[in-house]
């Protein structure tokens, strides 16, 4: 199994470490030429404005969008969720727009609003979620809601795409990554 991890900016190493510990082969996607023979894709946390800009500057955008639309299993966290969303309520930018949800960027405010919470995730069970200057999902549209925290949607699945507002790569709990790999194989 060959998983591409978008590595233009952000916490890509953390995803790589978890996936490699589960036996997946990982490639860091930094340029167009890296996007070959992928079985899965991870869009990590970081700054969505930076990642979105670099995807275009490095001419990776169209190719990746085609792969996601073509059904490549995709796990997105935090900034990655913003890249996938069809609409961002407090930002005019739209990036891939392949996930039919409306998200709010920096929805919990600045760093002082960052928090952790243990909540139920559909098909996984209780999970320790870390929200770091995180978004949440205002409208899940046709996507299946996987988790809510304080009535706000924080995890969805739509066809081949999983969108999470929190960071499963930081907590030392690999159940969500296992689930993602089971989608890949």
């Amino acid at each position: 199994m060959r998983i591409g991890i978008l590595a233009v900016q952000g916490a890509f190493w953390e995803h790589k470490k978890v996936l490699e510990s589960l036996g997946a082969e990982c490639v860091e996607l930094r340029q167009k030429k890296d996007m070959k023979d992928l079985d899965g894709l991870v869009l990590p946390g970081g700054e969505s404005t930076v990642q979105g800009k670099l995807l275009r500057d490095l001419d990776m955008f169209e190719e990746l969008k085609k792969l996601i639309k073509g059904g490549l299993p995709t796990l997105s966290t935090c900034a990655g969720l913003i890249l996938l969303a069809k609409e961002i309520s407090n930002d005019q930018n739209v990036y891939f727009g392949t996930l039919p949800v409306k998200v709010k960027r920096n929805a919990y405010g600045r760093q002082l609003g960052s928090f952790s919470k243990r909540e139920y995730v559909q098909g996984i069970g209780d999970f320790e979620m870390k929200f770091i200057r995180a978004p949440y999902i205002e409208d899940a549209g046709e996507a299946e809601v996987l988790a809510k925290v304080d009535d706000k949607i924080v995890a969805v699945r739509y066809e081949n795409q999983i969108g999470l507002a929190f960071h499963p790569e930081l907590g030392g709990d690999d159940r969500i990554h296992r689930r993602f790999l089971s989608m890949v194989s």
């Binding site: 900016q9 952000g10 916490a11 953390e14 970081g46 960052s114 928090f115 770091i132 930081l170």
Partner: peptide, 14 residues
């Protein structure tokens, strides 16, 4: 501590 170190992790490669 984890959340604060985590924000720095999100800035990596930047």
């Amino acid at each position: 501590v984890e959340l604060n170190r985590g924000l720095a992790q999100m800035l990596k490669g930047g």
